[in-house]
């Protein structure tokens, strides 16, 4: 999948934006502990920075009520002194993550107990794209950007439109979205995101070796990627969510004007307001006829 090589980048400098799934409800039910996951990810981030002096790493936490930047390797504060046993990267990130979680908890609205709410992937993707756009405007030779989604929570179909919009804008600014999905089933959103933007979708089968997967599959910069044989996605789930009930559907009704998707027949498109003709539903049409 060739991405348009229109921009001039410093070709071996990466700007890696990582979105980190911090949905507490997911991690509470997931067999793999969060502490383990986080320590593997931290090691991976550290190795990205070690790969090149100019590499830049941004971490965005994807909560279930909010999203926030939790780490930026280019900011001044990140270069603070190491605190005892840990490098500045870790301590900073962990500190920010703690603060973020505290805030996220306050925002927590009461929901149905027993279900796992979806993480706000659309929000963190948008934030990542915003940051990348800023980096584009910063200097003449921006580092080559890419997004890596570390996601565990299942897709929230209600975010379908927002996520697809984020995907398309990423494609338009030629930012590949890599995704490493650690949940139990495959994520259709992330599969589509990687497929459309030309990134890699990978679902590591063995989570205790997560660091190795990350460093083998996702660590190389985009320039080197062309020379490597990386795992190819075997299939993409192209199913869409309907706009009316946010259900994931195989077949549905599509507005002929604005291409909105619905799971059942409507008289009028809720997105663009077009009135549909009554081609279907003989019974109801006949009923109406009879009354008139």
């Amino acid at each position: 999948m060739p991405s348009a090589p229109s921009k001039i980048y410093a070709d071996d400098v990466s700007l890696l934006v990582v979105t980190l799934d911090t949905n507490p409800f997911f991690w509470a039910t997931f067999p793999f502990p969060f502490a383990e996951f986080l320590s593997q990810v931290l090691a991976f981030l550290n190795s990205i920075l070690l790969l090149g002096q100019l590499n830049q790493v941004i971490v965005i936490a994807t909560g279930c009520n909010s999203c926030a930047y939790v780490y930026d390797s280019s900011s001044e504060r990140s270069h603070g002194a190491t605190t005892g046993t840990m490098p500045a990267l870790y301590s900073n990130l962990l500190h920010n993550l703690n603060e973020f979680l505290a805030k996220d908890r306050q925002l927590d609205a009461s929901q149905k107990p027993g279900t796992v709410p979806s993480s706000l992937l659309s929000g963190s993707l948008s934030m990542a794209l915003c940051y990348i756009q800023r980096a584009f405007r910063l200097g003449p030779m921006p580092p080559q950007p890419r997004i890596l989604c570390l996601q565990g929570t299942a897709d929230g179909p209600e975010q379908y439109v927002a996520i697809m919009n984020a995907i398309f804008s990423a494609q338009r600014s030629t930012v590949p979205i890599d995704s490493c999905y650690i949940g139990s089933n495959n994520s259709a959103f992330l599969q589509q995101a990687s497929y459309i933007t030309g990134g890699i979708y990978y679902k590591p089968p063995q989570l205790d070796g997560l660091y190795q997967y990350l460093s083998t599959v996702f660590a190389t910069d985009l320039h080197s990627r062309a020379f490597l044989r990386l795992p190819k996605s075997v299939g993409v789930d192209f199913r869409a969510s309907c706009f009316c009930h946010k259900r994931t559907i195989d077949m549905g009704f599509v507005c002929s004007v604005c291409l909105s998707i619905f799971c059942e027949h409507h008289d009028k498109c809720s997105t663009c307001g077009s009135v549909f003709g009554q081609a279907q539903l003989d019974a109801s049409a006949a009923n109406r006829k009879r009354k008139a």
Binding site: T22, P24, F25, F26, W27, A28, T29, F34, N98, L101, A102, D104, R105, D108, S110, P113, G114, T115, V116, A154, S184
Partner: peptide, 16 residues
């Protein structure tokens, strides 16, 4: 559908 028996307090607590 994954089910989560924990309340939000416990969930956030365990993460922190």
């Amino acid at each position: 559908q994954m089910t989560c028996s924990l309340g939000s307090e416990e969930a956030y607590g365990s993460l922190m």
